[in-house]
């Protein structure tokens, strides 16, 4: 079951490389949030009320509902053009994604011999997700797409923290969720303000030197 979910997560990355519409990128974010919620539920052995509500708040409410809604709302309000407008072709980004997968799995298989507490499949996919997030940020010009790339990167970090096992200090977990919440709030605030200051929220360009 766990393997299937993780594979689905990896599949969503491939889908993100071929899509041209902003709305489908947002749907991918929602799907990833749901998958992360399911994975966390499977992994938590003893579930008390507090940890359940914490996990649900972070993955289900924030990652799968509020943030995608925020972004699509921002797109609608700012009347952003609905296509992704990547600076590379779909084929190229799919090829890059395949390379990322090959690299991440090679690393995961290699690393399996070095550490006993690691799940190679999860580690590989998590690493690929982080690299994919960076690639989306590099290969796109729009602010909104940058934000989506950052969120995918954060999802990767979350998956990595799950694959690192249960030894994680609690405060670190708290930090991650704080980070995500606040940065999204500010990002949305900023995009709205950029919109009202610049006529075009797509790509502000006054600082060039």
């Amino acid at each position: 079951m766990l393997e299937i979910l993780v594979l689905l997560f990896g599949l969503s990355l491939l889908f993100a490389s071929v899509t041209n519409m902003l709305s489908s990128l947002i749907r991918i974010l929602m799907a990833q949030g749901l998958i992360l919620f399911a994975i966390t539920l499977l992994k938590t052995t003893q579930l008390n009320w507090f940890s359940f509500s914490f996990i649900a708040l972070e993955t289900l409410i924030f990652k799968a509902i509020i943030i995608p809604w925020f972004i699509s709302d921002t797109i609608r309000k700012n009347q952003t053009h609905r296509e992704v407008e990547a600076s590379v072709s779909n084929f190229f980004s799919l090829a890059i994604m395949s390379f990322i997968f090959v690299f991440s799995f090679a690393l995961a298989v290699y690393s399996q011999t070095r550490s006993t507490k690691l799940f190679p499949l999860e580690f590989g996919i998590a690493f690929a997700t982080i690299l994919k997030g960076i690639f989306i940020i590099i290969a796109n010009k729009k602010l909104i797409t940058h934000l989506v790339g950052y969120l995918i990167l954060e999802n990767g970090v979350f998956l990595l923290s799950l694959s690192a096992g249960s030894h994680l200090p609690y405060i670190v977990n708290l930090g991650v969720s704080m980070d995500i919440m606040i940065s999204i709030m500010i990002a949305v605030l900023f995009i709205n303000r950029i919109k009202s200051t610049f006529d075009d929220a797509d790509s502000p360009t006054t600082l060039k030197e």
Partner: peptide, 30 residues
Amino acid sequence: KSSLEAAWKYLFICSVGIALAFVGILLLVI
């Protein structure tokens, strides 16, 4: 306009950077 753009750039690039630093910290746990 320019200070708003600078702040956006700062927030975004540093958030990505700090996320990578967190990956480093997770790897330290591993």
